[in-house]
Amino acid sequence: MRIKPAEGRFLRLAVVLLVAASGGIEATSFLGLGHVFAGVMTSNLALLGMAAGRGEPLDVTAALLALGGFGAGTALAAWYTRASVTSATHWPRRVMVVLVAEAVLLALGASVWGFTGGRPGEAVRDVLQCGAALAMGAQSAAMVAAGKAAAPTTYLTGTLAAYIVKGIGTGSPGLWVPLRFAALVAGAALCAVMLDKARPWALLPSVVLVMCALAVAYLPEAHPPSAAGHSA
Rank of each mutant, 00 (worst) to 15 (best):
L209C: 09
A192E: 10
G8I: 00
T116P: 00
D196I: 02
V185R: 05
G39I: 04
H223C: 04
G117K: 06
S206R: 10
W176A: 08
S140Q: 14
G121P: 02
G229Q: 12
K166D: 15
V85C: 01
L76H: 08
A215N: 04
T42V: 06
V112H: 11
V16W: 03
A78F: 04
R2E: 06
V36G: 10
A142Y: 02
A183H: 04
R119Q: 12
T74G: 10
A186M: 04
W79F: 07
R54A: 15
P220M: 03
L134A: 15
V97G: 00
S87R: 15
G174M: 01
S231K: 12
G73P: 14
P225Q: 12
M96V: 08
A161D: 07
G121L: 03
A77W: 01
G117N: 13
A198S: 13
I168F: 07
H90C: 09
G118W: 08
V40Q: 13
A232R: 07
S111T: 15
G187I: 03
M143T: 09
L195E: 12
L48P: 02
Y218R: 15
S87Q: 05
T154F: 01
T157M: 14
E122M: 07
Y155T: 13
C191I: 00
H90I: 04
P220W: 01
D196F: 03
H230Y: 14
A78T: 13
L45Y: 08
G147A: 11
Y163F: 14
V207F: 02
K148G: 09
V36N: 07
W201C: 09
S22Q: 03
A27C: 09
M96Q: 14
V207I: 02
A75W: 14
A46H: 12
L105P: 01
S111F: 08
A27P: 12
A101N: 05
V207M: 03
L48K: 04
V124D: 06
V208P: 03
A138K: 09
I25V: 15
A215W: 05
E26S: 07
T154Q: 07
V193D: 10
L156K: 10
L106M: 15
A6H: 10
V193S: 11
G171H: 01
F70I: 08
A103P: 11
L203R: 11
R199T: 12
V185Q: 05
S231I: 11
L134C: 10
S111V: 13
V177P: 07
L31H: 03
W201P: 03
P224C: 06
M211N: 10
A6M: 08
T116M: 04
A38E: 06
A72H: 08
